[in-house]
Nucleic acid binder design. Structure first.
Lengths: 146, 146
DNA sequence: CTTGACCTTCACATCAATGTGAGCGTTTAA
DNA sequence: TTAAACGCTCACATTGATGTGAAGGTCAAG
C-alpha cells in the first residue's frame, strides 16, 4: 500500500511516516515511480512506534527496541553485541521505573478522586488524606534524557 | 532556600526551575531583593515534576495534576469543578493505558533478552543470518489506539 | 488533454523542554 | 574593599516530534 493508505490505517500523518523513515524506524520499498510501498506488517510497526513515542521514548531508543518486540522466531539477530544487550537491560529497567512511577501517580489520582467524590457526596466532615507518590531513583539519569 | 540549593537538592538546573515556574508548576516566594525563596516541600514537588515530565506528561497536564498529588494537608478540596474531575478521570485512564503499553513492551524486551541469552549460552556455531529489517508476520503486540 | 488526487523532495515553522550566555545586581568572605 | 559566588531578566540556540506549504512528478477519470 502507499503512504496515504498507511496514514489512514494508522492515524499517523504522511509527514510523520516520512519522519519515521528518516529516523530509520521503517524502511518501505519503492515502486518504479518512486512511490513508497508499504506492507501489511508496516501497519503494526507504525502502531508500535506510535505507542512507544507516546510513552515517551525517543526514536533513537525505539530504533533499537523494534527488532526485539517482534515474534520470537524471527528475532535472533546474528550480531547481538554485549552493548546491545546492555542497552536493552538499561531500557528495561527504565521502563520498569517509569511504570512504577506512573502507577503510583495514577493511584494517587484515584485516591484523590475517591476523596473528592465522597466528600462531595457527604458535603461535611474532615477531608481524609491521600499519600503522594515519591519520585523514583531521581537524579543523575545516566542516559541522555529528554 | 534559594534556587541554587534547590537545584542541587533536586538535580534540576536553575534554568529548568525557572522554566517550571514560568509554566506555573511551582510558585516560590520572593525575598526583598528579588531572589526566589523555596521551602522544603518544593524539593518534593520538583522531584514530582521531574518524574512526571520524564514519564512523558506535558507541563500543561502536570499543572492540573499537581494539586492532586500534593501533601495530605493541602488536599482540602478547593473549588473542584466537574470539568476538573473529568480531566482527572481522563488522565487517569490515559495513565492506565500508558502503563499497560509500557508493561507489555517491557515484558517483550524481557522475553527477548531471555531468548537471546539462553541461545547464546547454548550456541556453539555461527547463527544463521536473517533479513536485516522488517521481518514479515509481526503481530506480537499492537499498540493501543489513541 | 486537463483536472484532481496522490505522490515526491525540500525547507521553513512551531512547540516543549532544555542549554547557554550576556549584562547587571547582591551576598559573602578574605 | 574587592573578588568570587550567586541571583536576576532577557533572549537567542538547539533538539525532537510535528505541521505546513511550495514546486513539481504520476496517474486515473472525464
Amino acid at each position: 500500500m502507499r503512504i496515504g493508505k498507511l496514514a489512514e490505517r494508522t492515524g499517523v500523518s504522511h509527514r510523520l511516516l516520512r519522519y519515521y523513515e528518516e529516523q530509520g524506524l521503517i524502511i518501505p520499498s519503492r515502486a518504479p515511480n518512486g512511490y513508497r510501498e508499504y506492507t501489511e506488517s508496516h501497519v503494526d510497526i507504525v502502531l508500535q512506534i506510535k505507542g512507544l513515542l507516546d510513552a515517551g521514548l525517543p526514536t533513537r531508543i525505539i530504533r533499537q527496541l523494534l527488532p526485539c518486540l517482534d515474534r520470537p522466531e524471527t528475532i535472533y539477530v546474528p550480531n547481538v553485541t554485549p552493548e546491545m544487550i546492555a542497552t536493552l537491560q538499561r531500557e528495561q529497567a527504565r521502563l520498569s521505573e517509569r511504570i512504577e512511577f506512573l502507577t503510583r501517580n495514577r493511584d494517587a489520582i484515584a485516591d484523590y478522586l475517591d476523596t473528592v467524590l465522597s466528600v462531595r457526596s457527604v458535603n461535611t466532615g474532615a477531608p481524609p488524606s491521600v499519600s503522594p507518590a515519591a519520585p523514583p531513583g531521581s537524579s543523575s539519569n545516566a542516559g541522555p534524557g529528554r
